[in-house]
Structure formats: structure tokens, C-alpha cells
Design a protein around this nucleic acid. Structure first.
Lengths: 202, 202
DNA sequence: CGTTCGTTTGAGAAACCTCAAGGTCTGTGG
DNA sequence: CCACAGACCTTGAGGTTTCTCAAACGAACG
């Protein structure tokens, strides 16, 4: 949909399905930067920034509404509240990327997995998908490997260990939290960075 | 200066010296998100976002000019060109964070080091510090470890290997590129994500 | 002249990877 | 209905990278 290096004139708001933004290295390895779930912007940065610096593709069948770049830029002069909402979305995106950075830099494979699944759960709850016992998740273990900076084989082992440990079960398109308190503890997860209350309550 | 969790009403533009933004994990480990060099914003996100989600501290003695949050937010309605410049800065920050993410997720210790030093060099060149043969660098090996997601011991070994290999020398506050072409090759470094030309030429 | 901070090196351990092989599930064409 | 292909998951064995612990050294500083 959005390819690295292209100049794009618009972004999208994801209405249905999951997408992923990623970069491909010269040697063909992929690092997924983040997933987008319903309600998220796709390619917001490619509007504010001259060139999109990563690619986006669909993980499932998706539905999205196009948002013209010009409309967003106009909002900055004519609709300050709307502009603030867009900025909030962009800032939240960056906060998540920063958290992923910490994840990759300083957490073990198990901790990363726990943190990632808890973040997804929080984000999905906000749009009414899943509940505190788990959530539907169309990702493959290859997706998990590429977002967590691990090999797919190691992802599989980590998932088995966590399942055997009674922490969380990732299977057949669904994530089930078997002991969410211990999972939170393991991940050191704190939702503050997600700023869940949003820009409208400021 | 800026502490995680506090609500801040202003940001700064760094005039002199180096700073770092980082997060501390519950177990005391530190992940440096990025360094700021002269010309960079400090705490820009804490204006756009309700809570600053990371801390900032000085790496050297620094001089910075305060920028009031209200002035920046006003700019969005009254000075679109200025607002665009601020957005450009914020987007460039995020592009760098994304690149660091890829660094941590999918590159080896040597590749990370090469990439990081080349990025710093590019950014410093833009503000007239250093040249293509190297640049002054007040960072310690502990700083490198915490930004690259490595242990300080391993950073030391990697630096020695790269020095023995005739790639780059990191010593006594100065980085010297001994073979910048091979270094670029090793890192797969491409400046595109830095969008060096800036927002004014759009 | 002792202390602190940063660097350097060694040895052994842990985490994670690669390669390889097999298993399961699902959709598809015969 | 069956056979097959492709995508995904699972497990084992062995190797590499990186970590931790420990110790020593040099330079800067009071």
C-alpha cells in the first residue's frame, strides 16, 4: 500500500482488519515497526514527512478510509481541535515506537512477548475488541518474530514456555491471558505511555 | 531536566552541548532512545503529548533556549510555516527512532555501532560539527551500550575489533572514520530517513 | 595520594540463532 | 471424496553471539 521511498499524498484510517508497518534491510530481513488495528492511522507520517520511511501492508483483508493530506494540513489552520487529535495520534504512535525500542534493547524474549501482547490487548480494548481474558489475533509467529526482533523458531519456544507456565496462550487466531497479573509483572507493563484517555479530555 | 511522568509546559532548543533522552526499566536498566546535539529540540513530544514518556538529561554542560508550549501551539493556527517546521522536527525524530528500532531488532552489534556512528556524523555535519573524517564525541562506552542495547563490556570489544579492522576509531572524545566506505557498507547506511534537506525546501 | 570514572581483558555461562526435519491444518484441483 | 500443495507450527541438535562476573589499569580530581 505505502512503499518506502514513495511520496504519498494521503493517509488512511483503518476501519476493519489488521495492517503492519515495517522496514526491509538490504539482506532481506524484515523489522516490523508496529501493527495497526481498527481505528489507527495508516501512513500518517508520510503526510507530515516528505517521504514515507517505511512500508505498510495488510495482514488480513482490510477496509480503510482515505484521508487527504491537504485536508489534514488545512486542519492545522482551520480546525485546531481536529489538528490536536491528529497530533495526539502521531505522538501516541511515536510513544509506542519508543516503547518497542526499549523492548528490543533491554528486555528478554519472554518479557518482550509479554509486553507486546499486553500492549495489543490495551489498544484493542479501546476499540471494543477482546476483553481482559484475551483477544482475537490474526498474526502468525513469523509476525511476532519480526516485531520482537527474534527468530520464528525462538518465538515458538517462548510461546510454549509461557503456555506451559500458565501465563498466556497464543493459538488459532486467539490470545488468551491465563494469568494476566503475572504477565504484567513479567513485562513491567504500565499503560501510561499509551495515554489512553486521548486528546479530547484535555 | 524532563522526568518521565511529569507534565511539562515547555520544550527547549539545544544551543550547546549534548543531551540524551532515555527510559529506565523497573530493574534499573537504562535504554537511551536518542541523543540530542546542538540544534535539536528537547522535550518536543512532551508539549504535543500530555505526559512526557521519557526522561532527558545532559551528557555535557549544555546551553538551551526555552520554547513555551503555548507559543508552539499558537503557531499551528497563526504561523503555518513555523508549524510545519516543528512538525518536520518531530517527524524526523520519529524517523530516527524507527531506524534505531530496526538497528536493535535486526542488526548485529558491529552493524549497530557502525550505523549509529554514521547517523551521528550526518546529524553533526548538518550543524557544522565534524567532517567526513570524523567528529568530536563526548559519549562514554556506557552511553554507547545503553543506546545500542548492548553491555558496556561488549561495546568495548566491538570497538576494539572495528579499530583493529581499520574501520573506525573511538577514543578520547573523538570518532575517526578510518574507512568510511566500508563502514557504510557494513551498516547498510542510507541517509534518506534523515530527510536532511529539511522542511523549508518543500 | 587516595577516589572515582572510564576503559580494557579474560573466562565461563546464558540466550538466542541456524539448520534440519516432521507435523498439522486448510484450501484446491482431480 | 481424495490427494496434494502451501502455509504455519513444532521440536531437536549444535553453533554463535552476547552477557555476567571479576579483576586490573589509566587518567582526572580533590
Amino acid at each position: 500500500m505505502i512503499h518506502e521511498g514513495e511520496s504519498n499524498a494521503s493517509a488512511f484510517i483503518l476501519a476493519e482488519g489488521w495492517a503492519l508497518s515495517f522496514k526491509i534491510l538490504p539482506d532481506g530481513e524484515r523489522q516490523i515497526v508496529d501493527f495497526q488495528v481498527p481505528g489507527d492511522f495508516l501512513g500518517l507520517r508520510s503526510i507530515l514527512f516528505r517521504t514515507s520511511d517505511h512500508s505498510v501492508e495488510a495482514a488480513t483483508r482490510i477496509e480503510a478510509s482515505e484521508v487527504l493530506a491537504s485536508d489534514i494540513l488545512d486542519a492545522f489552520s482551520h480546525a485546531p481541535r481536529l489538528a490536536a487529535a491528529v497530533l495526539w495520534a502521531a505522538s501516541r504512535d511515536e510513544a509506542m515506537v519508543v516503547e518497542h525500542l526499549v523492548n528490543l534493547g533491554r528486555r528478554s524474549a519472554e518479557e518482550r512477548m509479554a509486553h507486546f501482547l499486553l500492549e495489543l490487548s490495551s489498544r484493542l480494548l479501546l476499540v471494543g475488541m477482546g476483553d481482559k481474558t484475551g483477544f482475537p489475533c490474526p498474526l502468525t509467529q513469523y509476525h511476532l518474530a519480526d516485531v520482537l526482533g527474534l527468530s520464528a523458531v525462538h518465538v515458538n519456544r517462548v510461546l510454549r514456555i509461557m503456555r506451559d507456565d500458565g501465563l498466556v496462550t497464543f493459538r488459532k487466531g486467539h490470545v488468551t491471558f491465563d494469568d494476566i497479573d503475572r504477565l504484567r509483572d513479567l513485562a513491567g507493563f504500565d499503560t501510561a505511555y499509551l495515554d489512553q484517555d486521548g486528546p479530547l479530555l484535555r
